[in-house]
Design a protein around this nucleic acid. Structure first.
Lengths: 144, 144
DNA sequence: CCAGATGTTTGATGTCATCAAGTAACTCGA
DNA sequence: TCGAGTTACTTGATGACATCAAACATCTGG
């Protein structure tokens, strides 16, 4: 392990971010799996605070709309989600989490937090600093 | 938008980390796609500094060994990778990046760095601080 | 030397991803 | 108002990943 605590290179920072990112993704996948969900299904469920049209889910997941059909089909088959027609636009189907769906995603979230005990070792100043620095890395998502 | 810059909650930090993680993953996927690689293929290629047995790749990817067979098949079909028998153990096949494979992954890495201009806005003190804080979040990955 | 463990592949199956095409419904201008 | 164009969703074809179970060759230890 190298001694670069004082001046990490850009590459080192990128790699560290990537390592943390994949670790977190695996934790999320594991938590979802405990409830028989794929990561993608859990991700969809997590977006459903209110009714969301299929098209909106595709935008959130950054994927083709036709993909969402199948994902919601599987969630619906397990009664975690419901399609209901939009009153405003008969083309649109709004996806809504059922009570069971909300319960499942609530538990997944709980486990994610429990898994991250490391965050508890940061004091308030440190977490504020970390948050501020990370916020500057958050992409605004301009076009390429 | 809430006013919690001074004291972000654990949940907010987790969400910010997740947002950055998925953004980075998408950038990686986009960079890989420019060379006709799937994210997984690029990830495998990135691991191949030296010869790595199939089993080792499965461990790095945290997936079933049988999965690696197909991934390496596709990379090998495009001459980005080669299987060579291990001299030490005739069961083992070592995967090695070809010259073309090394070149491709080098370019993917370059684009990743270019994409992250945001990192350049951190001065040395800031990046050192960020690195130190993130390092404390890096999981040691004990068993469950 | 033989029983068990290990490394790789194959085959079956399921989920996620794309694209192309089709249907229904909305919108807007002529 | 009517019709062309856009939008929302689904279906079908195809391909990459992911798992598991099973087969096979090879190593390893007693």
């Amino acid at each position: 392990m190298s001694e670069t605590a004082t001046h990490p290179t850009k590459v080192q920072l990128l790699e560290l971010l990537a390592a943390i990112g994949t670790a977190q993704w695996r934790e999320f996948a594991a938590a979802a799996a405990q409830y028989g969900l794929t990561p993608t299904q859990a991700r969809v469920l997590a977006q459903l605070d209110g009714p969301v049209p299929m098209r909106g889910l595709a935008a959130l997941l950054v994927c083709d709309a036709s993909n969402v059909t199948g994902i919601v089909d599987r969630l619906e088959a397990r009664e975690l989600v419901r399609r209901e027609p939009s009153p405003a636009d008969r083309r649109v189907k709004n996806v809504v989490a059922t009570e069971a769906g909300r319960e499942v995603i609530r538990r997944v979230r709980e486990e994610m937090q429990a898994a991250h005990g490391a965050l508890d070792t940061l004091d308030e100043t440190e977490s504020a600093t970390l948050y501020a620095l990370l916020a500057r890395l958050r992409p605004s998502m301009e076009k390429s």
